[in-house]
Amino acid sequence: MHALKLYKLTLAERLADLAVDALIDEADLSPKPALVDRRGNGAHSDLHLGLMHASALSLWPAFKEMAEVAIEWGQIGLPLREALGRIGREGEQAMLTTTGGVNTHRGAIWALGLLVAAAALEPESTGAGAVALRAARLALLNDCHAPQPLSHGAQVAQRYGARGAREEAQLGFPSVLQRGLPQLKKSRLQHHGEQNARLDALLAIMTDLADTCVLYRAGLEGLLAMQQGAQAVLDAGGSASLAGRRQLHELDQQLLALNASPGGAADLLAACLFLDRIDGAS
């Protein structure tokens, strides 16, 4: 059955459900290196799993409205881009109200908001590549109403010449399409189990991503530790193997010692899970 036609929901409601589900599934996934999961708060002193759930649920109205305006405008252009920016900022304020000022999902609002709108624009064309391309076209448009102060991620992206969340979207989410989704499908075909397949997808994203969250917290040392450690897990057989689990534990401990939490990779895993759910549905 079409992933976007289940239950008696509108298209916008279903897409919002899928986006929130992706955020909750990402938060619940365990054991993630130095990230909030069912074991604990990772490298974060101000986050916990319940807060991540509450934050994700608070974003449902924003995702629904993003889908609705995409359906209303019906085409990619500056009016839609500016509407998405406004809704995203309102969603961020709702998130911050829910979390008491803690930034839980700012990057995810950007990534998933674009993907939700892109899926809503052409619900009969939901292949991952097609949706990501429409999202990229939206991301390339300049929202003149966006605030000018640079986020932490944008600051370190400039400092290190890294590809931040904006550039990742503008390029069509290569970390998801070229790393995360292929690894997710590969691990499933190898019968690693769904949770291990999702962990492997996260690790695949981490192997190549210049994660600005890690750069902000731990600089190039942290980034290198994340990328090399994630590759070591996959080289050892992935998270479904005993050797891979040992490498994963080692990576977790190393990133915790560096206070390096790969939040950018986590946001892209949520994007990966969203695209996986709607990929090719017709």
Rank of each mutant, 00 (worst) to 15 (best):
L4T: 12
K5R: 14
Y7K: 14
K8V: 14
A12T: 06
R14D: 02
L15N: 06
D17W: 00
A19W: 00
L23N: 04
L23D: 05
S30Y: 11
L35A: 05
R38L: 15
R38W: 13
S45L: 14
H48L: 08
L49N: 06
L57F: 01
S58K: 02
L59E: 02
W60F: 11
W60M: 13
F63H: 07
K64N: 02
A67L: 04
V69G: 12
W73K: 14
W73C: 10
G74Q: 00
I76Y: 01
L78A: 08
L78N: 01
A83V: 03
I87V: 13
E90N: 12
E92I: 01
T98K: 14
T99I: 02
G100H: 04
G101W: 02
G101T: 00
G101N: 04
N103K: 10
T104F: 04
W110E: 09
L114M: 04
L115C: 05
A120I: 12
L121K: 00
E124R: 12
G127Y: 13
A128M: 03
G129R: 09
V131S: 03
A135Y: 04
R137Y: 13
L138V: 07
L138C: 05
A139E: 11
A139G: 11
N142T: 15
H145A: 15
H145W: 11
L150S: 07
S151H: 03
A154K: 05
R159Q: 14
R159A: 15
A162K: 01
G164I: 01
A165C: 12
A169R: 04
L177A: 13
Q178V: 10
R179K: 14
R179H: 15
G180V: 04
L181Q: 11
P182C: 11
P182H: 10
S187H: 13
Q190W: 09
H192I: 00
H192N: 10
N196G: 04
L199D: 02
L199S: 04
L202F: 15
L202I: 08
M206Y: 11
A210T: 11
T212M: 04
T212A: 01
C213M: 07
L215F: 00
Y216A: 13
G219S: 05
L220K: 12
E221A: 10
G222V: 02
M226S: 05
Q231M: 04
Q231A: 12
G238Q: 04
A240M: 08
G244A: 06
H249G: 07
L251M: 00
L256G: 00
D267V: 00
L268H: 05
A270G: 09
A270I: 07
D276Q: 12
R277E: 13
D279V: 09
G280S: 05
